[in-house]
C-alpha cells in the first residue's frame, strides 16, 4: 500500500494534478462557508465540498487502482445528498413555525 503511494507511476501525473486542483476548490468552498451570509449559502457550499471530496476519493481510487475506494466515494455522495435534503427540510420547517 505505502509503496504504491510512494512510487506513483508517471502516467498518473494528470490525475494527481487534478487532485491538487480539487484541493484548491475545497479551500474556495470553505471561504463561502465561513462568509455565508445565509444558511442556504453555507449548505450549498457544504454540498459542493462533499462532491469535491467524492472527486478526490475517485481519483485516489484510480491512482491506487483500488475499486473499494470508489464504493466509499459513492456512499459519501449518498450521505451528502441526504444531509442536503435534511438541511433543506430543516430550513423550511423553521420558517413555517
Amino acid at each position: 500500500m505505502t509503496e504504491r503511494l510512494v512510487g506513483l507511476p508517471a502516467t498518473s501525473l494528470p490525475l494527481t494534478a487534478a487532485m491538487v486542483i480539487l484541493v484548491g476548490a475545497l479551500l474556495l468552498a470553505l471561504i463561502r462557508i465561513v462568509r455565508g451570509p445565509t444558511i442556504p449559502d453555507r449548505v450549498i457550499a457544504l454540498d459542493l465540498m462533499a462532491s469535491l471530496v467524492v472527486g478526490l476519493l475517485l481519483l485516489l481510487g484510480a491512482v491506487l487502482d483500488l475499486l473499494a475506494i470508489v464504493d466509499i466515494a459513492i456512499v459519501l455522495a449518498l450521505i451528502a445528498f441526504l444531509s442536503t435534503v435534511a438541511f433543506a427540510s430543516l430550513i423550511e420547517r423553521r420558517t413555517r413555525e
Binding site: A29, D41, L59
Partner: peptide, 30 residues
C-alpha cells in the same frame, strides 16, 4: 484520455467553487 477527462473535470469543479464565491446571490451561486 483519462488525464484529459480528470483534468477538465477538476477544472470544472474549480470553476463551480469560484462561481460559488463570485456570484452575486444564492440562486446564481446554486
Amino acid at each position: 484520455v483519462t488525464g484529459l477527462l480528470a483534468l477538465s473535470g477538476a477544472l470544472l469543479m474549480l470553476i463551480a467553487a469560484v462561481g460559488l464565491l463570485r456570484m452575486p446571490d444564492f440562486y446564481t451561486r446554486m
